[in-house]
């Protein structure tokens, strides 16, 4: 197990390295000069070739690409000082660069964006389980009934609609057309500043949209796993012993059925944490996804780089974590 985790970690680091290299190269060899965006911004579009030259020189874009990549990596571990034209910016470890737009260290801004995205992820994921698991269990208990069939097909229907359209319609109709009071002002409001109610009501619609959409999948998984679990021998034994149905279903059946659900949940939670661009864009929640979208539009290269790396790291970690947890929950799985 330990060896496995180490192996996975090594391959994770390798992936992150490759991803960061790919992003680095992409910008380096992208068509316009990598210094062009900051030069335009700093000079209010008075970026003459001579000035562009200054920016390229101070940002190190005249060095070979591997030298600069080395500096970037060095910055992550020990921090560095970044020079832009004649201004110097201190960037402590782990240094992900300085935003071209705000001149703040990217790391600090990243940290300040995490609560919004985390709020989405925690609420959305909670609703996945809250809706998904009980409905799935109920459907499995009544397998084959009309209710079960109706449920399965209606959930299949919902999950077949592109998510962003579902979210967009939810927002347009509930917030704009019907002006439902609870949903009137979507967005991220920090608990510490605006209080828990404002935070809750700002997030609620996004959670509901995510929850309703995402729970269909959990229902399917739970139902499938429950159906399988309930046909196992030990359940038959339990039935033969005369245990009450409730005990059989919840204590014996559900416990076994939850294992695959937990794994999916872990990965989904990671995906949500890694940035929910559509959710944030539609419900105007200024988290990491929103930030990334803004950065791409504003050509804020250090931020784009940081968001992509952040997402990759989160995904790799959540995958690893899930595999480990899976092996603990289900003794049949042996990691190698």
């Amino acid at each position: 197990m330990f060896a496995y985790v180490v192996k996975r970690l090594i391959s994770g680091v390798l992936v992150v390295t490759l991803v960061s290299m790919a992003i680095f190269l992409l910008f380096w060899y992208g068509p316009s000069s990598p210094a062009q965006p900051i030069c335009d911004r700093e000079t209010s579009n008075r970026c003459t070739p001579a000035r562009l030259d200054t920016y390229e020189r101070t940002l190190g874009y005249d060095n070979p690409v591997y030298v600069e990549y080395g500096k970037f990596v060095e910055g992550i571990f020990v921090g560095r000082t970044i020079t832009i034209a004649s201004s110097e910016y201190e960037c402590g470890a782990p240094c992900l660069g300085v935003s071209f737009r705000t001149k703040q260290p990217v790391k600090e801004e990243l940290v300040s964006r995490i609560p919004a995205t985390f709020s989405i992820a925690i609420g959305g994921a909670f609703l996945y389980l809250l809706f998904g698991v009980p409905i799935g269990v109920a459907a499995a208990k009544r397998r084959g009934s009309v209710a079960d069939k109706a449920l399965v097909s209606s959930f299949l229907f919902i999950s077949s609609i592109p998510y962003y359209l579902f979210a967009l319609l939810t927002w347009l109709y509930l917030t704009i057309t019907f002006e439902v009071p609870l949903f009137s002002d979507t967005g991220y409001f920090p608990i510490t500043q605006d209080g828990p109610f404002k935070w809750f009501s700002g997030m609620f619609l996004a959670w509901v949209a995510l929850g309703i959409f995402g729970c269909t999948q959990y229902t399917r998984f739970t139902r499938g796993a429950m159906v399988e679990a309930l046909s196992e021998d030990y359940i038959r034994t339990a039935k033969a012993k005369g245990l009450p149905t409730r005990t059989i279903v919840y204590k014996h059946g559900l416990r076994a059925a939850l294992v695959p659900v937990v794994t999916i949940f872990g990965i989904d939670f990671g995906t949500l944490l890694a940035g929910t661009i559509f959710t944030e864009r539609i419900f105007e929640i200024q988290g990491i996804g929103w930030w990334a979208l803004e950065a791409v539009q504003g050509r804020d290269l250090p931020v784009v780089q940081a968001t992509a790396l952040f997402s990759a790291v989160i995904l790799i970690c959540s995958n690893l974590l899930v595999d480990v947890v899976y092996s603990v929950l289900d003794p049949r799985v042996r990691l190698s």
Partner: peptide
């Protein structure tokens, strides 16, 4: 990006 990038750069 901004058309000014194009317009202002003689090269």
């Amino acid at each position: 990006d901004s058309p000014y990038n194009v317009w202002l750069d003689p090269d």
